[in-house]
Simulated scan of single mutants.
Amino acid sequence: MRDMKGERIEPRIGNEKADPADAKSGRRNRAAETARDSRRESAATSRVVRDVLLDSPSSRYVPPDLPVAPQDGKVKRERGYTKASPQGRRERDTGQKTGRTGKKFWRSRNSSWINRKLGAVVFLVGLCLGIYWVSGPVAKVFERPIKSVVVEGDFNFITKQRATELIGNEIDGDFLQLDLMRLKNALLGDPWVEKVTLNRRWPDTLVVKIAEQKPIARWGDGFLNQRGEIVLVDEASKLSGLPWLQGNEADAPEILQQYQDLSQLLRSRGLEVIALKCDNKKSWRLTIKNHVEIALGRDQVMEKMRRFVTVYDTQLSNIWLDVKAIDLRYTNGVAVRWVADSAMARKYIKSQAQVKLPTPAASVTPQIN
């Protein structure tokens, strides 16, 4: 229990009188307690002042509402705080420490980069040495001669013996050292060869597949393939059964296309085109089997051929053997020349004699409308 001034009051029970010794002891206790309270308040005030000093830019700044700690003695700082001074010593120390830390960081980074580079160089050197050491035995395994050559394909114009001879001239290496591109070019150098496929079959076999050209028609000293390309050959006797196309080399694809269109139209009537010519004036003339020549002119070629087919179906199919030539260069009809001394030729000559017309030459060209 304390009085109004904060001093401790000992309780009394009954009417007992206070002992002078006890009263003196109580005063000493109260004085000790007061001193302890004063020290606690002084310590709290000092702690507040220290916190303010650390947060403020100047140690001379003191908030007006806080009590000022006594400056007569050094105050012990709590753990975790560093010494602060108005000259900025702390900042200098921090910069020095940061510089030392940065140097250590770059030094460690440079050393790690050098270590990685050295490790990579050592790895590459070891890898190269390993490959060099292993390549010898591996090369001996794969260095083996070619023991057999398999030639596949349809041989209609080039003989299999000729193909084998071309292949044998180019095989001069081992199984893996053979130059396949050179061998392929050698085979493609033959005009009858269109495509070549080469394959290695383990352990010592070479497979050669040859695709021949497909001649569609004769052209000069060679032939036209399916793309309208002119292929020259040394011996054209094998092409004697093909139709013969003539014209400018620049017009070869167009002439081939015209031949195919005309052949498709006439094939249904049993008529076969054996020759087709296009001169410098773009005038077309074709020859049908049994050597019947048909003049088509320069324009409306397919329309004129349809007109001929109509006349053939109605007038000429039964007497086709007597026909020598046909001219389709008219706008609304066709002219027919008969074979000399044929039945149709004698018939027309006799009919002209009955009407007292001048006797024509052996070959006449009446017009059929």
Rank of each mutant, 00 (worst) to 15 (best):
S237E: 05
L206C: 12
Q315N: 09
R306S: 03
A69S: 14
T287C: 14
D279P: 05
V125R: 08
Q161V: 08
K76T: 11
D172L: 11
L54K: 09
R100W: 00
R77V: 08
R218I: 00
K281F: 14
D3L: 04
F105D: 01
C128E: 08
G119Q: 03
L178S: 14
S59A: 13
Q87C: 06
V52P: 04
R306A: 01
S135A: 13
G153N: 04
D313I: 00
T287Q: 15
K282M: 11
W202I: 09
P358E: 12
K103Q: 05
C128W: 05
L328M: 12
R77G: 15
G80N: 07
D55P: 03
Y132I: 09
K83M: 10
V122A: 15
R200D: 09
L296F: 10
S363I: 09
S363P: 01
L256I: 01
I230C: 01
G6W: 02
G95Y: 03
M4A: 15
D322Q: 05
W338K: 06
S148Q: 13
I146L: 15
R329H: 09
R40D: 13
A295F: 13
R30V: 11
R2L: 06
A18N: 10
D313N: 01
M181A: 15
D251N: 13
D327P: 06
A250D: 14
K304A: 11
V208Y: 05
T205P: 06
S46W: 09
L124C: 05
A217H: 02
Q226L: 00
Y61W: 06
S58N: 09
G228H: 00
Y330G: 12
L286Q: 08
I368R: 12
K17E: 13
L66D: 07
D22P: 02
E41A: 13
D327M: 07
E33V: 10
V301G: 07
R218A: 03
A325V: 01
A21Q: 06
S108G: 01
K147V: 09
D190G: 01
R346Y: 02
R79V: 09
S56P: 02
P366W: 07
L66G: 05
R182P: 06
G173V: 03
M302L: 03
N199T: 09
M4Y: 05
G241N: 07
